[in-house]
């Protein structure tokens, strides 16, 4: 196939035909994981440094934690991913009993935009930066972590990965990934840091520890 751009690149690089490159220079090795406890502490600390709210919870403290969140953020309408983990925690059931109206995560964008709270779970968590890694699928719509003004992500210790390397090894063939490191922020007006310019204003990260 004739491609003038590629041909001109080859001409400029002094080649007439495509060549296979030598191996790419080696990368830097990943950081070593500390103990699970230390990694959890570190992750939650990093989220807090970025004005996120981070805490550890247990399956039986979920209802209380939700109650506090709903009151704190004045949640009227919410949506949540349809994943087995979240179903097992009966998140939507607890929210409904708190009088919160539930919207399907597969509802249209206009409906999701009216939600106060979007609940997801993180597929991975990076301790060094407090970064949540979320995949995307019909059960895990992207807009749930984006359109509502509050985002709650539930994560388990098993999702901790020491560095980007391990996340990429597992997820590089996923069609979509998003890293979330703190709530949406800007400093575009007089360098004043303001949260929630387009994405969620508030980010909650709950580390679900097994009893």
């Amino acid at each position: 196939m004739n491609n003038p751009v590629l041909e001109n690149i080859r001409r400029s690089l002094g080649r007439t035909a495509p060549t296979s490159p030598s191996p790419r220079p080696a990368i830097y090795p990943p950081r070593q994981a500390e103990s699970t406890e230390a990694e959890i502490v570190r992750s939650l600390e990093e989220v807090r440094k970025l004005s996120g709210v981070a805490q550890t919870i247990h399956a039986d403290t979920v209802p209380d934690a939700l109650k506090t969140l709903v009151a704190e953020q004045n949640i009227k309408k919410a949506t949540a991913w349809n994943t087995p983990n979240l179903q097992q925690l009966q998140i939507t059931h607890h929210l409904a009993s708190l009088g919160v109206e539930l919207v399907s995560p597969n509802a249209g964008k206009h409906d999701l935009a009216l939600c106060d709270l979007g609940i997801t779970e993180a597929d991975y968590l990076l301790p060094e930066t407090g970064t949540l890694v979320l995949k995307s699928s019909a059960e895990k719509p992207r807009a749930v972590s984006l359109l509502p003004r509050v985002h709650l992500a539930i994560v388990r210790p098993g999702q901790l990965r020491p560095d980007l390397h391990q996340v990429f090894d597992e997820a590089r063939h996923d069609p979509y990934l998003v890293f979330i490191t703190g709530p949406s922020r800007t400093a575009d007006i007089e360098l004043t840091v303001t949260l929630g310019v387009h994405g969620p204003k508030s980010l909650y990260v709950w580390m679900l520890e097994e009893v």
């Binding site: 996923d174 069609p175 979509y176 998003v178």
Partner: peptide
């Protein structure tokens, strides 16, 4: 350390309801 959002987009959506 990292910007707030980093997206890794490979092609269009696979299922309509995922956005």
């Amino acid at each position: 350390k990292l910007s707030t959002y980093t997206q890794f987009i490979t092609g269009p959506r696979r299922a309509e309801s995922e956005f």
